[in-house]
Amino acid sequence: MTTTTHEAEVAAAPREEGLMNLTLKIWRQNGPRDNGRLVTFKVKDISPDMSFLEMLDVLNEQLQAEGTEPIAFDSDCREGICGMCGLMISGEAHGPEKTTTCQLHMRSFKDGETITIEPWKADPFPVIKDLVVDRGSFDRIIQAGGFISANTGAAPKAEAILVPKENADRAFVAAECIGCGACVAACPNASGMLFMGAKITHLGELPQGQPERDARVVSMVNQHDAEGFGGCTNIGECSHACPKGIPQDVISTLNKDLRTALKRGR
């Protein structure tokens, strides 16, 4: 086993306490038509205080120094809110903690560990390059009805709309969805029902969302299916992987709203 040799190497190198040497198996795919493969890289002296993406920054600096093209991956806010980042880390969407990839820190890993890093894998999220995928299908689901039609200027006074706190709170919990796609990546069916259910619940809990409630759910579900997302079979991986903890019952709300709408003949 390589572990012994590896540990010997680590012991020989004098360094700051807690620093880690890691083996990374990273998905490399040079464009949508390339087949893609896992490539092994080593990184040394990784601080437990680094974020996971900072660890990849270190690797990319190293690769560029060697003349190798850096690994493409998405990230933007690096505060866990924009939803741009998202990696399959050793088979788990966003890795071992309940958070986004950018908020995952290296203290969650151990010296000598081998980590596999892959993009989201789901037909509605085609790979663009390396770890970068196209999540335009999520935007198109929102276009299908994930909004309240309220033209600028036409709004009534905010104080005229009363929202019971419990409805406001449940709407808020659902509205926390960041659209990262972890739910789809984690689901064996590549279903987008948690994402969609979160929006249906957010808008459906509010009085402002009622006029379009039936049309919204039918239209969004149709778009979801047309994009090639699968159906929900109540496995619960989506909610488990969700960095914002969107509860699985938003899918129940979605199904209920759909039933009601279909009964009314929408």
Binding site: I148, P156, A158, L206, Q208
Partner: peptide, 9 residues
């Protein structure tokens, strides 16, 4: 007013 009408919680 505008944001509440859009459903901002």
């Amino acid at each position: 007013d505008q944001c509440v009408a859009q459903g901002v919680p």
